[in-house]
Design a protein around this nucleic acid. Structure first.
Lengths: 246, 246
DNA sequence: CCAAAAGTGTTATGCTTACACCCATGC
DNA sequence: GCATGGGTGTAAGCATAACACTTTTGG
């Protein structure tokens, strides 16, 4: 029977539910951003047992009166100082091996977030002088708990979503050049991409996803580059952003 | 800080972890099968408050010393009588709105399972004369909790995985005709599929996924149909079956 | 003038789609 | 022999991949 431990019917069954031993439930966040030509994730250094001194994903407990996605967004805000709900946040997977935390049984619902490059650059990670740092996902330190695996799963999800959802734009400023966009894909997919074919795919696809910003050009050391913006053509199907669920 | 509620460091922090209020954690199962030309899901009728008399997904508590995927597989065995680990089982999503269960805070990790048509046909659902039944996913009764939504998410996941993973074969017997396979896709995707093009896609794809069984034909009312089988060409990348994780 | 980066065009390939057609069996 | 479902073939269209080329700026 649903919600019943041993498929037993008892008259007082609706009181039993709270008598069973309960695990702790946390959320852990894989916060991605693009910085200095690298895909980076935000990590915090642990101050105490277990895994004292090691780096770990930001996270925390889910409050009893709080939705899981709300806990994830709260943690995101606490960790980055970004209050707005405009940061991409998606539930990743739930990890719950009995021995993943030596203290007690802890089940963690992992989320991943995407910070636009310009946002994370303005950010003061660890403004309280705490040990909070961006790490390249291809050069991670030894991680606490099963966080290595969580990041691997997050990276895998990010990669696979890259070419069938417009998720990439959540890592870029509102306006960007074609080269920036291509570099983003190149960094995440970890392989070279043909300049022209990439551009064609983006601009001349059946349902166009980006459009040129009129009279907007990025002036730099060489020929000015056209600026593009993402176009949401009537609400795109995102994975899961604001609410709780896909 | 990870695993800490308020990002505070205290000396006795490793004792604090178990003092915080903890939610109950369950697993709920969306068990799919193909029966009588329909995509069906297994439901159980609730005997008590809350939602007494209504239909719900099979599920139960995660034991404290038990991995989540182990709990899901245990429930699958209890509900279907199938002990083997050869049934496809994949973590779907974690639902945890504070009010989704009127008894107390219950977070549920939803899984979906795929039963081959021949297996579910041999099955005695509700052998203990309990109210356990297969329902067409396109004609569901009113459901308890947020189970309607869980099924919707499961169906969506099943559909999207259909054409980039060999997940369909987990719903068919080991050998099947091309028409059976096409009907399966047709039922799940809820649209007609061209006979020849479907066959071509299956047989002449770059990495072939099925192969003809030599000298095996299904004899019926008309021309005998070739039997095919799935070919795993060196361990395919499944979503998540046995272990815990994608 | 020249290096560097932006942007354009052309061809080949391969998968998908839409159809038209033949084959084998039971009644 | 004929209805029914199983199986094969072909041509058009679209998207991608590979690659050579022109344009525009700053120094």
């Amino acid at each position: 029977m649903t919600e019943q431990p041993e498929a037993q019917d008892t008259a007082a069954a609706h009181y039993d539910v709270s008598r069973y031993p309960r695990p702790s439930v946390t959320v852990d966040l894989v916060i991605f951003t693009i910085g200095e030509g690298q895909l980076r994730a935000l990590l915090v250094q642990r101050g105490q047992w277990p895994f004292a001194g090691m780096w770990a994903l930001p996270g925390g407990f889910v409050h009893l009166d709080e939705a899981i996605h709300a806990a994830a967004r709260r943690e995101l805000g606490e960790e980055t100082g970004l209050a707005g709900g405009d940061i991409y946040l998606e539930q990743l997977y739930t990890f719950g091996e009995p021995d993943r935390d030596p203290r007690t049984r802890v089940i963690t619902v992992a989320y991943f977030a995407l910070l636009p490059a310009d946002v994370s650059r303005r950010l003061q990670p660890g403004s309280d002088a705490a040990a909070v740092r961006w790490f390249s996902v291809y050069d991670l330190p030894e991680l606490a708990f099963d966080h290595q695996r969580i990041i691997a799963v997050a990276l895998s999800r990010l990669r696979s979503k890259l070419d069938w959802t417009p998720i990439a734009f959540r890592l870029l400023p509102e306006q960007f050049t074609m080269t920036q966009l291509r570099n983003l894909y190149s960094i995440i997919l970890d392989r070279a991409l043909d300049k022209q074919n990439f551009s064609k795919r983006m601009l001349h696809s059946r349902t166009p996803v980006i459009e040129a910003v009129p009279n907007a050009h990025l002036t730099g050391a060489h020929r000015p580059a056209q600026l593009y913006r993402f176009v949401q053509e009537g609400r795109y199907e995102w994975g899961a952003t604001g609410g709780d669920g896909p």
